[in-house]
Design a protein around this nucleic acid. Sequence first.
DNA 1: ACGAGGTCCTGCGAGC
DNA 2: TGCTCGCAGGACCTCG
Length: 273
Amino acid sequence: MPELPEVETIVRDLQHVVGTTIRSAELTHVDILRGVTRPKLLEGLKGRRIDTLTRRAKHAVFTLGDRRLVVQPGMTGSLLVHTKPLTPEEAKYAVLRATLSDGRLLVYRDVRRIGTLLWLDAKGWARYDSALGPEPLEPEWTVEHFAGRLAKSSAAVKKILMDQKHVVGIGNIYANEALFAAKVDPSKPGKKVGIEAAARIREHSIRILEAAIRSQGTTFRDYRTGTGERGNFQLELFVYGREGEPCRVCGTRLSGTHDIDARATVFCHRCQT
DNA sequence: ACGAGGTCCTGCGAGC
DNA sequence: TGCTCGCAGGACCTCG
């Protein structure tokens, strides 16, 4: 489940493809495309130079001249570069395969294909970018901004924290962890959170995202770094995936619910109020 | 405008 | 053993 730290890791690992040109590309399934047809994407990629590879929110962004390929890995997507022909196992979920000018193969792999690919011109990019909220690791995500968004909403604070309009990059795992660290009940309505708790949530979100980047992300099952390795942050989780187990702070049995946005929420009813 | 809930997609593990 | 079923969830959609 690539969130910000996982995509950041992938993008850093794959900087070595910058400067190469895409010789040709293949696509095995069209259901991962949004707003573009297969021929349009494949013809568009052909002959284009990869000028930059960056991250925006939970997405990897390839800039190729005046176009951008946005990869939204969703649940099970990963980006990998192969120097040898794909083995049957590697080929099985390799949805997009781009042959680079140096002969290497850039692959978007996605088992469940919840992930999507966008092919954007300048106008499409502007529309995509402006629909997203601030980057949490940039100064633009201020306490004032976050507290203001919380104050305007009666939705659960966890849902607001995961809403990419308000702040990007935080998904289910890191929302659970940040709210635990900040000692805030995930179901608390945004408008009841208050400025001090908002500041704590913001601080811990930033701290946890940075720590997760240092650990190369969280691997539960499918996520792999840009070099095919597993992340290590799953070893540092306090609540996610630990329903029924003892709280690492107070020993209370951790609670679980699906009441918020139909996502698995795990929390300590004693520590989080 | 906002919130609630459905949909996509496949592998895996629990339960019978 | 072999089957069914529920679950995992980011982004996007519709409905009220």
